[in-house]
């Protein structure tokens, strides 16, 4: 059990960071803070992928053409996938922020409970 903790410590900490992000997303009522929590979660997932590509004793995957001895390189594939994911993450964050601004314009609040009670009031008024 203990040796698993030592050989996998990076993964365990990544899971911990991820859960802090998830907790912010589902427990916070403020929409901006929810988005920040989403970013936290996302960065932790990136860290998880990059940890998977690491080889101990390896170096960055930039090929040295005329090396005297064979060089051990880390796995470039997770790096490629995460490069794409980072840019897509910014697109989703921008879209989320635009939605938050629109919600603020409509409901004059970015707190989830205030928005929900306002919606309930609107429905009640429309029933009367």
């Amino acid at each position: 059990m203990l040796d698993v903790l030592i050989t996998h410590w990076n993964y365990f900490i990544v899971v911990f960071l991820m859960m802090i992000g998830l907790f912010i997303v589902i427990s916070s009522m403020n929409l901006v803070k929810k988005l920040v929590g989403l970013n936290l979660f996302q960065t932790s997932v990136f860290l998880f992928y990059i940890s998977l590509g690491k080889i101990s004793g390896g170096t960055a995957p930039i090929i040295v053409a005329k090396a005297d001895a064979p060089i051990l390189y880390s796995n470039p594939l997770p790096h490629v996938l995460i490069l794409t994911a980072i840019v897509v993450g910014v697109a989703t964050t921008a879209l989320g922020l635009a939605l938050v601004l629109r919600i603020k314009a409509s409901f004059d609040s970015i707190e989830e409970d205030a928005i929900l009670s306002e919606k309930r009031n609107i429905r009640r008024r429309s029933l009367l």
Partner: peptide, 17 residues
């Protein structure tokens, strides 16, 4: 990321993230 040998990802994360 630099410490884990992912230099390209580190650049992108620092600039974009």
């Amino acid at each position: 990321f630099i410490n884990l040998d992912a230099v390209d990802v580190a650049f992108t994360e620092a600039a974009v993230g």
